[in-house]
Structures are given as C-alpha cells and as structure tokens.
Design a protein around this nucleic acid. Structure first.
Lengths: 146, 146
DNA sequence: GGCCTAAATGCAATATTGTTGCATTTAGGC
DNA sequence: GCCTAAATGCAACAATATTGCATTTAGGCC
C-alpha cells in the first residue's frame, strides 16, 4: 500500500511495526509532533515504543525525506512534497499549531542567489512563517496559544 | 557607550552586570551561543552567572530585539539589524558555524504575500540558509563540522 | 551620602529532551 | 525453519530548560 514500505524497501531498510506506527502518527495530524508526543499518542492506543526507538525512526525519516523537523516548535511533520531538495517552506499557525509545507521555486532560487551575493554558497534552506491560519484569523479575539 | 544601557533604560529595565556580560559575550563572537556556552565563556573569565539568570537575560534580549535565537543550532546571536519587525534572515556556515543576519524587504514582502495566498496571515518570519561561507568554501576538502 | 522597594539574581529542585552502550528481538534472505 | 544483520528495548546518563522561593542589588528618594 504504501508510501512508507516502498521507500524503506527501495533503500534497503526493513519494514517494521514501529516504523509504520510512527509514520501513521505523523500522517494522522496536521500539527508537528515531538518524539515524546508521538510516544504518548501511541500509548493512548495501548502501543508502547521506547523513546530511543522513536528518535531513531524520526532520524531515519528525516534522512529519507519522509519527515521534516519544524524548528519553531521542534516537532516533526510528514513531508508531502517529495523532491524539494533541501528547500523547506513552512507556514505555522501560532494559535492552533497547524503546519503546512509549501514549495516555491522562485523564492527558493532568490534565497540562494541572495546568499551567493554575500559570498555564501547555499546548500539547503529553511523558511518558517508564523501567523494565523484562515480559521484562527476569523476568531482571533479568543486567546492565542503558541 | 551603550546600545545596551540605552535600550534597557529606555524600556524601564535596570542596567546590571550580568546583562552587560551576556551582551558582551554575544558581541564578541560571530557564532551563535547557547545559554550554557555563554556560561562557560564567562567562567573562563572567572565570572560566574547562574544558568537561570542567563536564560532570563536571553529571553529579555529576545523580547527587546537585542538578540535572536538561531533555530538550526539553538544558539543566540546579537541582532545587528534593529527594526526588522519580525523578519529575520540568517545565513549559517555548516562548517565553521558562523552566522550572518541579513535583511531583504523584497523577499520579506514576497514571503508574506505568498502566505496570504494560502489564506494565512503572516506575522513574523524566520529564514535560515545553510551552506558554506566564502572562507570554508575555499578549503572545502577538509572535513565538515556542523 | 544612606534608605527603601521593586526588580534582578542565585539557588535548589525538578522537568523535559536527547544520547550512548549493550542486550535482546525480529525482518527478510536463504 | 534457520541464520544474521538490522532494528528495537532498556538502563543509565547527559544536556537543556523551568519553577518557586530566598537573597541581593539598581536606582529613585530623602
């Protein structure tokens, strides 16, 4: 079925229960999840994974481009835009915490050439925009959270 | 003399030894410093600050726009571009760890309008480009560090 | 100059997050 | 079913961050 099993096998990694569970957890949410949050989530479903295992799985997912770490709140999100080649652009709602990843070749190119102007050879790029999503902007009188 | 004392007084904060020391530490380096790195640095000069104090000072500096946290390596740098209004653009060398902050109104504007296209009301923006600075690019055969 | 008070710092205890080394289990090829 | 490298578990620890409260100090006042 899946994305995950295919990617793992294609790169010579084993398809295991824990890996599938972490992947499912990431897929089931629009908010970034920290390793320990993933552990808690799974525990609610009566499934226990050692936190070390989760760290190692997330590390693998990052290397495989299956997940990315959002730095502003140090959680992981599933990558929906394969092949972005080290250019990751997130929009993060500071109220509900939801995250979306976007791609924009134009901005990416500009960012790199801009760096080069300063004698800097860009390899990868991370962009995080904080604000309010449409939903939270609508009811923005309520107190903010993040 | 100072930037720091002026800003503190202008906003009703006291000018203290610890604040001056942390500020000086940030000023004396081109690499981002974590709270504990700052503590170690000061200790080498036989000056001890409790880490809680350093955390609180860095927090204050962030709120006052005197320092920014670089997320890629979770260290703080002194802000050299006052009035950027929540738009921070860093270039980080993954070899020597040096960081430079830049401003580009154009990119900043694009980023925001781009977010708006997705129904997202941007408030602040963070951009971190990883790569090699001119110096490290020159001798890039040597092993990389960060 | 000394006095006073709110602000700043120190300190201890604790919580959270991340890492390492090694024992045990398991996926997947035979 | 067996075998082995890979994956996971586990325990111990290291690093980072937070909280509440006691103590000290900057700066306004006389």
């Amino acid at each position: 079925m899946g994305n995950l099993a295919d990617v793992l096998r294609a790169r010579g990694y084993k398809v295991t229960g824990p890996r599938q569970q972490v992947f499912d957890a990431l897929e089931g949410t629009e908010k970034p999840l920290s390793p320990y949050e993933i552990q808690n989530l799974l525990q609610e479903e009566d499934s226990f994974l050692n936190h070390v295992t989760i760290y190692r799985i997330l590390d693998l997912f990052s290397r495989l481009g299956l997940a990315h770490r959002v730095l502003s709140n140090s959680g992981f999100v599933k990558c929906n835009l394969p092949g972005q080649e080290g250019c990751h652009r997130f929009v993060i709602c500071r109220c509900c915490g939801s995250v979306q990843e976007f791609a924009d070749k134009e901005l990416c190119r500009k960012e790199k050439s801009f760096a080069l102007d300063c004698g800097f050879h860009a390899e990868s790029h991370l962009s995080e925009t904080l604000g309010l999503c449409a939903k939270c902007y609508g009811r923005r009188d309520e107190k903010t959270t993040i």
